[in-house]
């Protein structure tokens, strides 16, 4: 099986290790991965802020870049949700682009969705020594992926899984929200960090670069030694 990786602009620029880990996990499972070089950003920041014409420009660019008909794997629920849920909505009155949006929506999968629901794998053969907890990224709720990442984590050998209080409460990232309302967003991420610290783990796992940069940035500011890891970075370890 062959898939195309949509690495997301945040991972590309800020956390390339997330993309690398995703490629390694997929290859270990016998999946060939290609990386369409023209990919940039899915347009979600524009869509969420109401700049829908600009969002359509970027959506068309992404649709063209991934027009090869292959399954697309995204190590981010947020970008996957943009493609799966919002692209069809953005083009719903466009006879040319709507079918293309629907097509890409169908073959695009967030990483844990792809592993658990497409490949049918929960044990990816990973080993990670340590106590970790898991923060549920909000867009997984929208995609209906309420248990997949936890199921994958619980099958990692050596990993001690500690549930997180209010695990499915937003960390306060929300894209432009975090910059518009640093007070509210800051209060949210401080609470998230406090709950994480309370678990006594050495690392917190999430599935989105947005949550990770927010939570990691806050943990650092608090002087905490707890690491933040993308799910792929845990599944990569053997």
């Amino acid at each position: 099986m062959k898939v195309s990786l949509l690495v997301t602009c945040l991972s590309d620029a800020l956390f390339p290790e997330v993309g690398i880990a995703t490629v390694r996990v997929l290859r270990r499972l016998g999946i060939a991965v290609d990386f369409p070089q023209a990919q940039t950003c899915c347009g979600q920041p524009h869509f969420n802020s109401g700049y829908h014409d600009d969002a359509r420009v970027l959506a068309r660019h992404t649709l063209r870049t991934f027009a090869n008909g292959q399954t697309v794997v995204v190590p981010s629920g947020s970008c996957a949700a943009m493609i799966k849920l919002e692209y069809p909505h953005l083009f719903h009155e466009d006879p040319v682009w709507h079918p293309r949006a629907l097509d890409m929506a169908r073959r695009t999968h967030e990483l844990s969705d792809f592993l658990v629901n497409v490949l049918g794998v929960e044990d990816v053969g990973a080993r990670y020594e340590g106590k970790v907890t898991y923060h549920m990224a909000c867009h997984l709720r929208g995609l209906g992926l309420r248990t997949e990442p936890e199921r994958l984590l619980q099958r990692v050998k050596g990993l001690e899984y500690v549930p997180l209080e209010r695990a499915d409460e937003c960390c306060g990232f929300g894209g432009s929200f975090s910059v518009r309302y640093p007070g509210i967003s800051g209060a949210m991420v401080q609470d998230k960090a406090a709950f994480i610290e309370k678990t006594g783990v050495s690392a917190v796992v999430a599935t989105d670069a947005g949550c990770l940069m927010n939570i990691a940035g806050c943990l650092r500011r608090r002087g905490s030694a707890i690491r933040t890891l993308h799910l792929a970075q845990v599944l990569e370890k053997t």
Partner: peptide
């Protein structure tokens, strides 16, 4: 804008 669009 006073929402992170978390969907809760």
């Amino acid at each position: 804008h006073a929402s992170s669009l978390c969907g809760a």
